Computed example of a mutant assay.
Amino acid sequence: MSKNQRAFTLGLAMLAGIALTSDQVAAQAREKELVVYASHPSEMVDYFTKAFSDKYGVKVTTVKAGTGELLNRIRAERARPSADVMWGGFSDTGKSAPDLFELYKSKELAHIEPKMIDPTGYNTPFGASTMVIMYNKRLVKPEEAPKTWGDLSKPEWARKVIHADPSKSSSAYAALVTWLIIYGKDDKGWQKVEDMTRNMNIVIKSSLVFQQVGRGEYPVGVTYEEGAFNYVLSGTAGIVYPADGTLLQPEGMFIVKGTPHPNAARLFADYLLSAEAQADLATKFPGRRPTRKGVSTHPEMLRADKFKVIEYDETWAAENRKQILDRMQKIIVKTQG
């Protein structure tokens, strides 16, 4: 509907003595298409985009890839954006690229846990995630599994740990930042990262980590909680929440600057924070942590107050992303030969 047509419709309604609600006005302004760039697991992306499409009559097209790849694509398309939404990464992903994303504060934020809300206004915090050590129960006894991140640098784990490339995976980048916060952002901390990386096989996709540990191709991996949790439920894997601490951060959903369909993008953000979508996140996708007040996680998930959560320096992670990744790439080249 064109701007003139909407104005004409509103005028007729006023003449007829009908008061349109704000939701009705928004519905008239809503576009019928939405393009979502997503780095989350396909099953979850497909479920929520279909539910959104069915509910609001918006045709959704998805492009799936790693967070780093999608960021590069959005940057390359900056002059003429193709995407409306980037659904993936963590909250600091948006802060690290303010030239690519628009500010949006959903009305649903009133129902979200305050500590999950991005004060800068870039992120729609639909879920929270943490990083864990995953181990295959057939290959590693629970008492022998690493208990801290630092344990991954011990000789017994040489080339037995799988981890994703932080330049390709937002979860791997979050793990890297976590290690630097724990062990130091100075040369001493970076040396610890290098010692750990020397024991790792670095792969290009975060999903390869939990898949290969789950299949027994690697005994241990560094991954995000949800990826590991499904293997925990099947009895094939165990999870360690490192004793030296881990992050618990809101995951990312960002509206692309200059989006072709801004109203549909905002509606999608509102939908992901709604009571309906948050309940589905908890019940249909075990291992995910909803951010909406009053929505519980899966009963077999460890409560957040039962493991050590670090103070994740989101601003530092965003502002220093390029320098951190550049230094990490040098370590990968040095240790992966």
Results as ranks from 00 to 15, higher is better:
A76Q: 08
N263V: 12
Y183C: 14
V85Y: 10
L10Q: 11
T93C: 10
I332R: 07
T246G: 06
K147D: 08
E113K: 04
L248G: 03
E251M: 12
K64E: 14
D280R: 03
T62M: 02
F307I: 03
D46S: 08
P166Q: 05
V132F: 06
E113T: 03
F285K: 11
R215N: 10
L273T: 11
S234M: 00
F268M: 01
F285N: 15
M134T: 15
K306W: 00
V63S: 13
D280M: 00
D270S: 03
A304Y: 01
N123K: 11
S129E: 06
N201M: 02
P262Q: 11
I204V: 13
W157R: 03
K334Q: 15
I255Y: 01
S91C: 05
I310V: 10
N230L: 09
K188Q: 14
M1K: 05
V220A: 03
E156N: 02
A264P: 08
Y47V: 03
A243T: 09
T291M: 12
Y271I: 03
F285A: 09
F307R: 02
Q336S: 14
T297H: 12
A65F: 00
E311G: 00
A158Y: 15
V85A: 12
L20T: 04
K147M: 11
Y312A: 08
S106T: 13
L233S: 05
M131A: 09
S169I: 04
I202D: 08
R80M: 10
L100N: 08
S106D: 09
L10V: 09
F48D: 10
L180H: 11
E319S: 08
S42D: 15
R266I: 02
T283W: 07
R159M: 10
Q323G: 00
L281I: 15
R75I: 01
I204C: 07
E156G: 03
